[in-house]
Design a protein around this nucleic acid. Structure first.
Lengths: 222, 222, 222, 222
DNA sequence: GATGAATGAGCCTTCATTCAT
DNA sequence: CATGAATGAAGGCTCATTCAT
């Protein structure tokens, strides 16, 4: 008796070990489907049915892994943010020349922001920001705000080294971030331009941003 | 006698001119209700029921004045845009000093963009831009893009007068517009900051924008 | 004073003379519009709005002349029936040969029944017969039943003259009516055939009907 | 042991085979409700709400099993047609005497056509034939037209055997079908007569039809 | 845990009818 | 009497969520 486990028991045991919605593969699978559907349709127009189908999972399973539609969406946003932040700040950590660091950071930022999913995420989060202010705030704080803060910290270092002369590095960082996107991000966000900017465009705009920034905050060397 | 029209006649005349759904008061009333509900909930979460209630009008009446929910929404957006554009470009038409003109324009712009309805309109339009790209494009072109173009035209004039040295005035205009909003617009849009910026904040940020802009593009006088 | 009537009084007087919905022109105008719309859409899919527009009359006026949609429809059916019955029974009144009389009556009947409005009326009345049994019965009694009765009366005369030998002239009349339509009416009613039968087809089918009828009920002359 | 399937397994298997909306019991249940409501009210006046209530099923479930109201209705019509066609053509296949075959076929036909649901189906299909011509055509082709064609084929056989002399068997078949219904079907269809014809009435009318038919097309034997 | 059929609240829209002018 | 804006009940349909299996 003890030698043979009937299938039923095996299942019972393995079930006991599991926590609700803890199969990472299935979770991943669901998020992939959700990504596709939310991206294509926006929050409200995306149906749990579509998501279940896109994820190749039953509708019920969705609710095993995520409390409801909103939680699923938030989890997706969080995953995507983490995924995309990777490598974003390397430009600031390495030790190239100051202008080169800014150029690398700026163009990385623009590439990140103008890619389709980042745009979708922005649109969706902004679209629900009124109803779900916490989601909006969190998205802002962990995304754009954090980017500016890291850049500000970088600028602080360079001010300390007397390579830059900046009173308010927080503002300066925001200025640079905005300059780098000038002309490129907004029309994409409104869907008025359907293709990501070319590398040449990025280089030109970021180049101008660096030039302007240095002219304002750069320290002239004798 | 013949010089005065009795009220009865006036009404009769105005009634004859009337087209279905053309009572301007009722139309206004509906748009007010729609404004309130769309602003509070976004496009999808706003129900025609709620809008009818908010406008103190029957559901059927909504459809006498507007073809459907989307048309109502677009009409609202258009009305608000017109309402808010008034006086926006005066700063560029008057003849104060160059820096003063930029300062006035920049602070006007920021005040406009950070007020609650402009934010709502932005959020809603962005939220549906994926599904309604035409609306997104139009909103962009008639709003942000037009603002930048007018500023670019202004810059062209000043370049012609040798007060500024700018290669690409379109880019320069976008840069100024972005600098003027730095720090102020984005957190508002994400609903991470719930109150409009103070006049002092605006003055500071716009001041920095003007300073940076002039340092980059200004022509030094001997 | 008594010599001049102010317009107001004139109106008051003329108004007093009128009975509700008694302007025959307007009534006719409304029925024309109703005809067009009911015919094109059927009872339920026809809206009072459409009818008002088609009749070039305000929606309110509809209700001055007809109690409600159903009464309007019934009035229309009645008018059309009268309109179309004209001349139907002449063939039976004149004194041609027996077979010629049957042929004329039969082809007149088929022409009447397969024309577009008669088909529409049939369809509509049948479509609502479940909900409005009185309308169905009345339509039947004043239309098809009456036609058969008149033919039966005609047959009675000819039986009296020993031109025909029929036990049950009511049944014989119905048989002839059905034979005359064989093949022609049903597919039209179901909209499976979109054009009225040609005169040749009518002649052939009615000819066969007469032949069959005479073979069964005709009295052989020595 | 291996020979018997435990219920659990049976269910598991049947569940795996299941497609959305394929539970035959529920489907049947819905069709029953739809039958009741459509029959009582006609197509337009029948609401999905009523049908759901009559079927003891939620409104949503209706849409799991049927795409929309029209598809539900068509499915119902099809089911009823199949249900009622059973046994219709047996009379023509068996080998009784010619007149007996016609009599059996004719009375079967009349019984079928004058029963309440067939009448309802006719009324409904005719009522919507203007707006849904395909449904009308299909109903006609698979119902009345097919009946006439089968009879025509039967007549062809008997012509080949020299039992009948018919030029146009298609027309002759239609004639017989119409004669068999004379007096019985039309008043029922218009709801002018509320009860099905008695067997005696049927026998009399069909008898007359056969007599007339044979007199016209029968081959006299020496 | 996984499934997907079932639910029912709620959505947008239409339309017969009313009524102030 | 004529008008047509306004009404609000009702319609077809969708969808997030639940729950028996």
């Amino acid at each position: 008796m003890s030698a043979t486990l009937e299938p039923r028991h095996v299942k019972a045991i393995s079930r006991n070990r599991r926590v609700a919605g803890a199969d990472p593969d299935k979770r991943h699978q669901i998020l992939e489907g959700a990504h596709a559907v939310f991206t294509a349709r926006g929050f409200d127009a995306a149906s749990m049915n579509d998501i279940a189908a896109a994820a190749n999972v039953s509708k019920g399973t969705l609710y095993v892994y995520f409390e409801d539609k909103e939680h699923l969406f938030v989890a997706l946003i969080e995953r995507e943010r983490e995924k995309q932040k990777q490598g974003m700040y390397e430009a600031l950590a390495e030790e190239p020349g100051l202008e080169q660091a800014l150029t690398n950071f700026g163009s990385g930022l623009v590439r990140l922001l103008t890619n389709p999913f980042a745009l979708s995420a922005h649109r969706i989060v902004l679209g629900v920001a009124e109803r779900m202010p916490d989601l909006g705030r969190e998205f802002y704080e962990r995304g754009p705000m954090q980017g500016a803060q890291r850049l500000a910290a970088f600028l602080d270092q360079r001010v300390a080294k007397s390579e830059l002369a900046i009173d308010d590095t927080a503002l300066a960082a925001a200025q640079f971030v905005d300059l780098a996107q000038s002309t490129l991000m907004r029309p994409r966000l409104f869907n008025a331009v359907r293709t990501p900017p070319s590398e040449d465009e990025i280089a030109r705009v970021v180049g101008e941003a660096v030039a302007m920034f240095m002219m304002r905050y750069g320290v002239k060397k004798p």
